[in-house]
C-alpha cells in the first residue's frame, strides 16, 4: 500500500481542482444569494453578468499587453480586474435604473423581476457577443505553475507528480481575500448591517432610517464585483467562452440553494460541496485505488459518472439536500 503516492494523486487530480472550482462557484453563488436576499429574486442574468465582466477584463488585458504592461509572474488580468469590475458595476446599476427600479418602487411581485432578469440576460448575452464574440479565449499569462510536476518529482522522489497552477493558487487566494472582506463588510460595518437589516425586514429598515435605494445600489455593486471576479478566475483557470458562463449558472444556483438561499455562509459551503462532489463523482479513481489497494484489480476506470454528467451531480445534491433539509444546509430565507 502506497499511501503517499495515493495522496499526491488525490491532491493533484481531485483536491486542488475541486478547491479552485469550489472557490469560483462560491463567489458566483455569493452574488446570486445576495441579490436573492436583498432584491428578492433569483437573477437569471448572473451568468451573463459574469461573462460580460470577464469579457471586459479580457479586452483590458489585451490592451495592457499591447502596451507592454504586465504583472510579472502574475496574470495581467489581475491588473485589468478593477476596470472589469467598474464597467460591470456601471452596467448593472444602469440596468437597475432602467429595469428593476420601476418594479421595486411599485412593490411588484418578485416573479416579475425574475422575468425581467430573463430579458436582461438576453441583452447582456448579446452585449457580450458584440463585445468579444463567441469564440474561446485563453488569457492567462505570467508564470504558469507554482509547483510543476517535474520539480515535485525531483524534490519528493515519488513517481507521481503534483502540479499547482498559478491560476488555481490565485483563485484560492483571491477568493479568501474577497470572502473575508465581504464578511467583514456584512457583519462589522454599518452599511453591511444595513444591508442585512433590509434583507430581514424592509419596512423596519426604512423606519430605522436606512435608505433602501442605497442598500440596493451597494448590493448591485457587490454582486457585479463578485460576478466579475468569479468569472475572471474561472476564465483564467479554464478558458473564456461566453456560453460556458451560462451553463455555470446551474451549479451556482445549486450551490446557493443547497447552502440556503439568502445566506452568504451557506453559499460558500454550497459552492465547495457542489464542486467537491462533482469532481469526486466524475474522477476515475482507478489510479488511487491502485496505490491504496494494489491487490485489488478493478476492471474499469472506477468512475461513477462521466464528466459530461457533472451537472447531474449538482442537481442530485440539490434534491437530496432539499428532501432532508428544506431550508438548505444553513437556514436560508426560502422556507
Amino acid at each position: 500500500m502506497d499511501f503517499l503516492n495515493a495522496l499526491v494523486v488525490f491532491l493533484n487530480f481531485v483536491f486542488i481542482p475541486a478547491a479552485a472550482y469550489g472557490a469560483q462557484l462560491a463567489l458566483g453563488a455569493l452574488g446570486v444569494t445576495l441579490v436573492y436576499g436583498i432584491l428578492r429574486f433569483s437573477n437569471f442574468a448572473h451568468g451573463d453578468t459574469m461573462a460580460f465582466g470577464t469579457a471586459v477584463v479580457i479586452l483590458v488585458t489585451w490592451g495592457l499587453q499591447a502596451m507592454g504592461i504586465s504583472l510579472g509572474p502574475l496574470p495581467t488580468a489581475l491588473l485589468a480586474l478593477p476596470f472589469g469590475i467598474a464597467a460591470t458595476a456601471m452596467l448593472v446599476l444602469l440596468t437597475d435604473k432602467a429595469v428593476y427600479k420601476f418594479y421595486r418602487v411599485k412593490k411588484a411581485a418578485p416573479i416579475i423581476l425574475v422575468m425581467a432578469s430573463v430579458g436582461v440576460m438576453f441583452v447582456m448575452n448579446g452585449l457580450t457577443r458584440l463585445l468579444i464574440g463567441v469564440s474561446e479565449y485563453r488569457f492567462d499569462d505570467g508564470e504558469r505553475f507554482i509547483i510543476n510536476v517535474r520539480d515535485f518529482r525531483e524534490w519528493s522522489g515519488l513517481p507521481e507528480g503534483l502540479a499547482l497552477r498559478s491560476t488555481q493558487a490565485l483563485t484560492l487566494v483571491v477568493a479568501v481575500i474577497v470572502v473575508i472582506a465581504l464578511f467583514y463588510f456584512l457583519n462589522r460595518t454599518k452599511s453591511g448591517k444595513a444591508m442585512r437589516a433590509y434583507s430581514d425586514n424592509e419596512d423596519l429598515a426604512l423606519l430605522s432610517g436606512i435608505d433602501p435605494e442605497r442598500v440596493v445600489r451597494m448590493t448591485w455593486i457587490i454582486a457585479a464585483s463578485l460576478a466579475t471576479i468569479a468569472g475572471t478566475l474561472y476564465g483564467l483557470d479554464k478558458s473564456f467562452k461566453a456560453f460556458n458562463y451560462f451553463q455555470i449558472l446551474m451549479p451556482i444556483f445549486a450551490a446557493a440553494i443547497v447552502g440556503g438561499l439568502g445566506n452568504p455562509l451557506g453559499a460558500i459551503a454550497g459552492g465547495f460541496l457542489v464542486a467537491f462532489s462533482e469532481v469526486a463523482v466524475t474522477y476515475p479513481w482507478v489510479k488511487i485505488v491502485g496505490y491504496i489497494a494494489p491487490w485489488y484489480e478493478p476492471s474499469g476506470l472506477m468512475q461513477l459518472l462521466g464528466t459530461e454528467y457533472k451537472f447531474a451531480v449538482s442537481f442530485v445534491i440539490l434534491i437530496v439536500v432539499l428532501l432532508f433539509r428544506p431550508t438548505g444546509l444553513f437556514r436560508g430565507k426560502s422556507a
Binding site: 436573492y36 436576499g37 428578492r40 429574486f41 433569483s42 420601476f102 418594479y103 418602487v105 411599485k106 412593490k107 411588484a108 411581485a109 418578485p110 416573479i111 416579475i112 425574475v114 422575468m115 434583507s199 430581514d200 425586514n201 424592509e202 419596512d203 429598515a205 426604512l206 423606519l207 433602501p212 444556483f253 440553494i257 438561499l261 439568502g262 430565507k333 426560502s334 422556507a335
Partner: peptide, 26 residues
C-alpha cells in the same frame, strides 16, 4: 404590474423571496 401575473410563480422558493418584503412606499 403587480397584478399582471396574478399569483403566478410566487410559490417557487427557488426564484422568489417574499420574506421580509416591504409594504411602505419609501
Amino acid at each position: 404590474q403587480n397584478a399582471s401575473f396574478g399569483n403566478r410563480g410566487n410559490r417557487d422558493a427557488s426564484v422568489v423571496n417574499t420574506k421580509g418584503m416591504g409594504t411602505i412606499d419609501g
